[in-house]
């Protein structure tokens, strides 16, 4: 049977301030909305402004550098000095290309094994050593790269007596790459769900076998991403190698020989009196930027694709 609902007489209390509050807020509302819109537009403008340098830079790189990089001689010839008779005889940058490859290769050999191992250690250990190393590696990651050059100079060039060489430059770059690899390896290993480790241990496997056979393979994506990013940074750095590689003018793979490097060639020739050289550096810069972009983007894409596959 349907009831007739008894009305509960509402006892309204405490609304004295409501009208005053609503009056004030109604008056101010439009102004607040406008201010919000203005600030939002300003923030959006800031974003656009931050995009401007990149766009300008890319434009200049392609505008001035593209003609340069389209000649094979750019990649295959050794550099030469322009003269008054042949002001455009800049040659190529094969020595710098080889040099960069050599430096990156040797630096990677030095930095990757140690870096990954330390990163794994930091992820798996609670010791005081691990805690201090974590602070150290994060601080070193932000250290001025010129200091790596000073270190390599004192230690490799002078104390070890090796002199200006690819080895010295590789050492400096390795010191640069180490913290980056350590940090990203630690993050990668920590990112492996600990349930995976516990499952392995619960099956009776020994802890180190669990680490090596279960946890590390799961962390490989992150570790490799970190390595790629570290390499990408090393390729572009000038300051560490500036002081120690000696600027070799030949193509050489020997670690004890002086060697050239792409960023160094840019640095040396940017202020050249010869317009042809100043144009050439745009080509070098273009090659460098494209290479570094490709590395960064592929590292990012690979990392996110593996993330989705999970």
């Amino acid at each position: 049977m349907s009831e007739i609902i008894e009305l509960q007489e509402p006892v309204e209390t405490g609304h004295q301030m409501r009208d005053e509050i609503r009056q004030i807020s109604d008056r101010v509302r439009a102004r607040r909305q406008i201010r919000s819109r203005i600030m939002v537009v300003l923030c959006g403008t800031a974003f656009l402004i931050s995009a401007v340098p990149l766009v300008l830079l890319l434009f200049q790189l392609f505008d001035r550098g593209l003609p340069v990089v389209l000649h094979t001689s750019f990649y295959t010839q050794l550099p030469s000095t322009p003269t008054l008779i042949s002001p455009n005889a800049t040659g190529g940058v094969s020595n710098a290309i080889i040099g960069t490859l050599v430096l990156t290769l040797y630096a990677s050999i030095m930095a990757i094994p140690v870096g990954v191992l330390v990163g794994v250690y930091l992820a798996e250990s609670d010791s005081k050593l691990a805690a201090s190393l974590r602070v150290i590696s994060q601080t070193m990651a932000g250290a001025p790269s010129i200091l790596m050059g000073l270190f390599a100079f004192s230690f490799v060039v002078r104390d070890l007596g090796i002199g200006f060489s690819a080895l010295a430059g590789s050492f400096a770059l390795a010191v640069l790459m180490l913290p980056v690899i350590i940090i990203s390896s630690e993050i990668a290993v920590r990112g492996v769900p600990h349930t995976l480790r516990e499952a392995g241990l619960a099956l009776g496997a020994k802890p180190h076998k669990v680490s090596m056979k279960i946890v590390l393979p799961a962390a490989v994506t992150g570790i490799v991403t970190g390595i790629i990013l570290a390499m990408s940074r090393a390729i572009g750095e000038t300051a560490p190698v500036l002081l120690v590689i000696g600027g070799g003018y030949i193509n050489s793979w020997k670690p004890l020989d002086p060697v050239a490097a792409l960023p160094l060639s840019i640095y040396e020739n940017a202020k050249s009196e010869w317009p042809s050289l100043r144009t050439e550096v745009w080509g070098i810069a273009l090659v460098l930027v494209v290479f570094v972009f490709v590395l960064s983007l592929s590292a990012r894409m690979w990392a996110s694709r593996k993330q989705q596959a999970r």
Partner: peptide
Amino acid sequence: LRFNGIKKKSILDEAAEASLKS
């Protein structure tokens, strides 16, 4: 109240007390 543009301390104080009591 502040978000909605009410700044007068007397109103804010009164509202604070009333709402906290409620």
